[in-house]
Design a protein around this nucleic acid. Sequence first.
RNA 1: GGAGAAAUGGCAGAGUGGUCGAUUGCACCGGUCUUGAAAACCGGCGUACCGCGAGGUACCGGGGGUUCGAAUCCCUCUUUCUCCGCCA
Length: 423
Amino acid sequence: MLEITRIRSEKEAIIEGLKKRHFDAKPIIDDILTKDESWRSLKSNMESILSEMNASAKNIGLLMKDGKKEEAEKAKSEVSKLKDQEAKLKSQVDELEKEILQLMYLLPNVPNELVKAGKNELDNETVYEWGKTPNYNFEAMPHWDLAKKFDLIDFELGVKVTGAGFPFYKGKGAKLQRALITFFLSEAEKSGYTEYLSPHVVNEASGIGTGQLPDKEGQMYQIPIDGLYMIPTAEVPLTNIYRDVILPSEDFSIKMTGYTPCFRREAGSYGKDVRGLNRLHQFDKVEIVRIEHPSNTAKALEEMLEHVKGLLEKLGLQYRILRLCGGDTGFASAMTYDFEVYSAAQQKWLEVSSVSRFDTFQANRLKLRFKTADKKTQLVHTLNGSALALPRILASLLENHQTKDGIIIPEVLRPFTGFDKID
RNA sequence: GGAGAAAUGGCAGAGUGGUCGAUUGCACCGGUCUUGAAAACCGGCGUACCGCGAGGUACCGGGGGUUCGAAUCCCUCUUUCUCCGCCA
């Protein structure tokens, strides 16, 4: 959520910035500012009445003490009138507050200056490429065929037990999955991230804190009887650790990592894009989250990109990095880099990581702040990224490292898998 | 699941209807003293919103209520602790 003070003072810049998303913010912002103005004047009215009431109450107390009962009774009846006025004003103020908040929720984050204007994924910029496409001298199989051939993943069993998009991993498939998780966590630890094993369901306040709620609840699996939500990413529990926190000094840099399953309802996707592991309702992911001083955000983002690059290179997977255009950048993000791995067998790029800086957008909702040197409170910056999402990594690993007689496990994973080949 | 107790500022801990946004101690920050440090002493020390400012308003786990007035009384929810039951 953008800060109301910023909307007041940088109205034009925000409208301009949001044009890069093809988002017309002007009517919303105008509406907000009009409501904000009447909110302020009503509120100031209300508060002066409250002030009067407080003074009278105090006075009545003194009169009672002095035994001046009649005067006290008279004062009481006068206060009652104020009370009615106050109640009327309060309901108006509350109503306006609610309306303003609803409008604020509609405004996405303002894109960073590096972000290009654009409508959709076609306008994304490729900023980095690494690796070569494998040259198969045989008919390369897509991962769903490989998974079947080597009995690594059972999609039908998932359908039987749960539903589509909830696969079972079996045997070496399950082990490979577990090895990847451990590998990613140990790499994150080497880069200075503290590991957390978090709850996999969260309450409403947490959903609001990271922006899934109030309007994207349809993307999450819900447990209404307990008011809980299955997490769509570890970002939610990890970032919410710091909800309503004021860090005591400017000197901080919080680096967290965590493995969790991620649950996504993802309604409305069909066809070959969702084939196999390409899109699931439940998948595993290792996430990295950072909470930074605003002056350190650019550097932190750079470090996160380097970290993810390292992972993909160690796994020997050809990849490219895209800087998303305005229209393709997530609602809360100021700038996002997507990592895509090339799947030669499917002949397409698969998104395996998304690294974003949110600046104060999440911190504002989270009320996550720090104390400046001169004792002021200021919002922190948050960042996060996948490092990495498992299914498509598994898919490209199987596809890109397949040979005629089996799948070669990358060197770095062997200590974790305990085998070097699937055949 | 049943019975009881509790929730106050970074922590500890007062406060049961009227200058209480809240006594006090510790912690923390600034100052005096000191060659330096400690001790001692003095001062400061929550958050948010409105206002150019003076200042005002709200917040004592959350929400609601009673009252001229609520940290204090009532209802409700949540959480924690103790006991019983059940259980990995």
